[in-house]
Amino acid sequence: YKIYPYDSLIVTNSISVKLPKDVDRTRLERHLSPEEFQEVFGMSIEEFDRLALWKRNDLKKKALLF
């Protein structure tokens, strides 16, 4: 996945969300650098992957990456 800054990946309720063209809309968190991922989620990507799907989705919603 290509890395993008968190600010360019957050999704708000506005209709005209302009995400970069090559971003996987269903896995926005994968486009964060490991350092920024840790900062946003408070855990590593590996720890995040071990969580239940509902928990990952809940965290993504709170981080505006859903």
Rank of each mutant, 00 (worst) to 15 (best):
S14I: 10
Y6C: 02
K60M: 03
E36A: 07
I15N: 15
L59D: 01
Q38H: 14
K60A: 02
R50E: 14
K21G: 13
K21S: 14
K21Y: 12
W54K: 10
D49C: 07
D24N: 07
G42D: 09
V40A: 05
P20G: 06
P34L: 12
L9M: 04
V23A: 06
K2D: 09
S44Y: 08
P34E: 12
S14V: 11
I15K: 15
E39I: 15
P20H: 06
R56I: 05
E29F: 01
S14F: 07
V11D: 06
S8I: 13
H31E: 00
S16D: 15
L19D: 04
K18I: 11
L19K: 05
A52D: 13
S16W: 08
N57T: 11
R56T: 03
T12L: 14
A63S: 06
D22C: 05
M43F: 04
M43R: 04
F41Y: 01
Y6R: 02
L59M: 12
E35N: 10
E36S: 08
E46N: 11
R56A: 06
Q38D: 10
K21L: 14
N13S: 13
R50F: 08
E36C: 06
L9D: 01
R27L: 07
L19I: 08
L32A: 00
F37V: 02
D24C: 11
K62C: 08
V11I: 14
F66Q: 07
I10W: 04
I3P: 08
D7V: 15
V40T: 06
E35C: 08
G42R: 12
L51S: 04
Q38T: 10
L32H: 00
V11Y: 08
L64W: 09
K60Y: 02
P5T: 07
I3C: 06
S33C: 07
H31Y: 09
K55Y: 11
K55E: 15
F66L: 11
W54Q: 11
E46F: 11
V40S: 03
A52L: 08
E39S: 13
A52K: 09
R56Q: 14
N57M: 11
T12Q: 09
D58R: 09
R50P: 03
K55W: 08
E36V: 07
D58W: 13
L9S: 00
S16T: 13
Y6D: 01
L32C: 00
V40G: 01
Y1W: 09
E35V: 12
F41G: 00
Y4H: 04
N13F: 04
L28I: 06
W54S: 12
E39Y: 13
S8Y: 14
Y4K: 01
V17F: 03
K55P: 03
V17C: 15
F48I: 00
S33D: 07
N57V: 14
R50I: 12
K18S: 14
V11W: 08
E36Q: 11
Y6A: 02
T12E: 09
K60Q: 02
F48Y: 06
I3G: 03
D49A: 07
G42H: 12
G42L: 11
S8A: 14
R25L: 13
F66M: 10
E29Y: 01
L32W: 01
S14M: 12
V23G: 02
N13K: 10
S8V: 14
K18R: 13
A52I: 08
L28M: 05
S16Q: 12
Y6Q: 01
S16Y: 09
D24W: 04
K62G: 09
R27C: 08
Q38L: 14
K61P: 00
T12P: 09
R30W: 03
M43C: 07
F37D: 00
V11N: 08
E47G: 06
R27T: 06
K55T: 10
T12F: 15
D58V: 11
S44V: 13
I15D: 15
L9R: 00
V17D: 15
V17S: 15
V11F: 09
V11E: 06
K60S: 02
K61Y: 08
S16K: 12
D24H: 06
I45H: 08
L65Y: 01
F37P: 00
D22V: 04
L9E: 01
V11Q: 14
H31C: 02
K61W: 07
E36D: 11
E47V: 11
W54A: 11
L19H: 08
V40E: 02
V17A: 15
S14C: 15
H31W: 03
L64G: 12
F48D: 00
I45Y: 07
E46P: 08
L32R: 00
F66K: 04
A52G: 09
V23C: 04
F37N: 00
I10Y: 04
S16L: 12
I15W: 05
F41E: 00
S16M: 13
R50M: 14
E39A: 13
W54D: 14
L28R: 05
